[in-house]
Write a protein that binds this DNA or RNA. Structure first.
Lengths: 248, 248
DNA sequence: CGCAGAATTGATACATCTCAAGCTGGGTGG
DNA sequence: CCACCCAGCTTGAGATGTATCAATTCTGCG
């Protein structure tokens, strides 16, 4: 399987695509070697569940490639996505035995895993890891709070625009720097996943996508490929005062 | 002023009421002494703004007594509370120059402050502080994500019940341990603040409070004093499967 | 070809918002 | 001590945005 083959190419941390953004970002060569000793790769297919809420967690790790989602579900089936895990994002919580959320692979996914115990021990002796993890956790907390504003106070149209803006911005920051020009990306989420993220129904997501298209805020090629002719316009629709948003 | 007098009594960290829960919880006597060297107390009156979003942060610190709220505001005035700061909670983000949120004193408040620079330096050399801060940040992240479910998927009635359950649980865990018995507490929030927390209007909050009262889920003495005859009933109304919620 | 999952579109129901009056209780000044 | 005032709260009637239920239409794929 293609995904399996990819993993082989990451064996050396020095050449890892997320080397400078993940939890190991601050580690020097010596520390990296210690991490290499306890790491292993795992691949998942799109749709596969990685972790069940309430399960015992035997590992923590980083997303290397692909996208996963953190979700919570109520007894009656209502679900809310509470996090989008992108390459370099950390999964799992040191010091906690059981998972608090479901983690599901949204696309095909590769993770760099560490068994939990050894990782926790390493954290005690390697301040660089704990420091980086603190930084990343603070960033995630900011993103979560930004998202609370979206969930609590924005209209359906603004919610969609906000989501598109995040994804668009992230994709662009990876490629080149020029914003507020024509931006193009693929939606990694189904309408249903978008609805779960935004606290809407998939019908409402669909209607608002159509409306944004009709108003010229976005263009659609197929269902998943999005073109944003004017990023500032999109940000205005999102209700953002064009300053930074999530995920800096 | 009464609040001023109180601060005098906290001069010694060893006798501080939040000694074992705040960011200094893991510090030993030596480390505490270093912290004492850079700390100072500040008092605020109910309603006073502690920090403006976008302002330069010159200090970080812990809430010693009272309650504060973290809020975000959109240009058109819509506001969303993104955090409730209780005694022992940490304010500010080491490594960031500007505040991302407004912080407002909900009740009269005392804070234990550290100038930001010295605190950051101390963090570098004192793993116990960084470790504790990581733990607290992870807890806050969990609370924020729990709240995303409330904002995104719960009905107005469930939202109110959820908020009352959190406040009730916290108050009880401070006093005695026996839950699911009669629980009593004062609401530290106005209806408007509740609305800002829950992503509702204050009219809807008021109506749902009335409805919960009429249905016997809660009793009200005056506007602010709440009696919960059956905590399990309240949790059921919140849509929680009676397991833990926020703020463990 | 035809099926299945994903997405769109339509008609209607309903929860919450909005706008507009009143109410309540604690504090202030005459 | 009373009358008034005002912030906080409650209640009402109607408007509106989103959910719900129900068909279709699309799209990729075996």
């Amino acid at each position: 399987m293609l995904v399996k083959d990819q993993t082989a190419t990451f064996h050396d941390c020095a050449e890892c695509p997320i080397r400078h953004r993940a939890v190991c970002a601050r580690c020097d060569a010596d520390e990296l070697e210690l991490l290499e000793g306890i790491k292993y790769y795992r691949s998942y297919e799109a749709g596969q569940r990685i972790i069940w809420s309430g399960d015992r967690m035997e590992f923590v790790g980083s997303v290397v490639s692909g996208i996963a989602s953190l979700t919570q579900t109520m007894e009656d089936g209502r679900t809310q996505m509470v996090g989008l895990l992108l390459p370099s994002d950390f999964v799992g919580r040191p010091g906690r035995a059981e998972a608090a959320y479901d983690v599901v692979a949204t696309t095909d996914l590769v993770m760099c895993c560490f068994r939990k115990k050894p990782f926790e021990q390493l954290m005690e002796t390697t301040p660089h890891i704990a420091q980086r993890l603190l930084q990343m956790t603070l960033d995630e907390l900011d993103a979560a709070r930004e998202w609370m504003l979206v969930l609590g106070r924005k209209t359906a149209r603004e919610k969609i625009a906000s989501l598109l803006a995040i994804i668009g911005r992230r994709d662009t920051s990876l490629h080149m720097g020029k914003l507020s020009e024509r931006v193009t990306f693929d939606l990694p989420l189904t309408r249903e996943a978008m609805a779960d993220y935004l606290g809407l129904t998939l019908e409402t997501v669909s209607r608002q996508m159509t409306a944004l298209k009709k108003d010229g805020v976005i263009e659609l090629e197929g269902k998943r490929h999005v073109v944003v002719p004017d990023m500032d316009r999109l940000l205005a629709e999102a209700g953002d005062d064009s300053d930074g948003g999530l995920l800096d």
